[in-house]
């Protein structure tokens, strides 16, 4: 009969609507504004609506998520910030749109380069969030940030990130990327142990 398939289609849409309420009912209080509720709505078993109500609840980003890069600094016990960056320039070299700018310092006496950048800029208006810099950084120094809430009214004042804006603590890094951080720390400890052995020998 003509129109039967159309009715069938309407039934399917109606079913989805009903499923949303069924799931809401089953989920009870935990369905909205809780992390388990969000997880339930992004699960493959979900059958009803999957809406995440940003900004009241935010879809958590996975660990590997990449937005704009940042520079990691370690904090020494006496509160001094020590940038991991050695200004080797690999990130500036691999950057596909060439949006990383580094000024390498030189020692006034010896004329040799010093392993801390004098300045470090990233032009966010050019950056393509590809993560190449983080991938190829040999010192675990440049990493991709998770903070995506960076909309502004004025790009000329805010969109070239300098050292001050880029530097974030290792603790922050450990918080957003725990697995990567743990793996890198393990490698580092191993290296340190080996170096210690060598000096002993």
């Amino acid at each position: 009969m003509t129109g039967l398939a159309i009715l069938r289609g309407l039934w399917i849409t109606l079913k989805r609507l009903i499923m949303t309420y069924v799931e809401d009912f089953k989920g009870g209080k935990n369905r909205y504004y809780t992390s388990e509720g969000i997880e339930a709505r992004r699960d493959y078993r979900v059958r009803g609506a999957i809406t995440i109500q940003y900004p009241e609840e935010k879809l958590p980003v996975p660990e590997r998520f990449r937005y704009v890069p940042f520079l990691v600094y370690d904090e020494t016990p006496d509160g001094e910030r020590k940038l991991r960056c050695t200004s080797c320039g690999i990130c500036a070299r691999v950057c596909p749109p060439q949006c990383i700018w580094i000024v390498r310092g030189t020692d006034a006496n010896t004329g040799k380069p010093i392993p801390t950048p004098l300045a470090f800029y990233i032009d966010v208006d050019v950056c393509m969030n590809c993560g190449m810099c983080a991938e190829f950084c040999p010192f675990d120094s440049i990493k991709m940030d998770h903070d995506y809430e960076i909309a502004t009214y004025d790009r000329f004042a805010h969109h070239i990130f300098d050292l001050e804006k880029l530097a974030k603590s290792a603790a922050y890094y450990a918080k957003i990327r725990p697995t990567d951080y743990a793996a890198e720390e393990a490698v580092r400890r191993e290296k340190a142990a080996k170096a210690a052995q060598k000096t002993e020998a």
Binding site: L59, V61, Y67, V124, N129, Y148, I150, H159
Partner: peptide, 12 residues
């Protein structure tokens, strides 16, 4: 308003 990112995620 400027929203940087390439591409900005829907939440951004």
């Amino acid at each position: 308003v400027y929203v940087p990112g390439c591409p900005p995620t829907p939440q951004a």
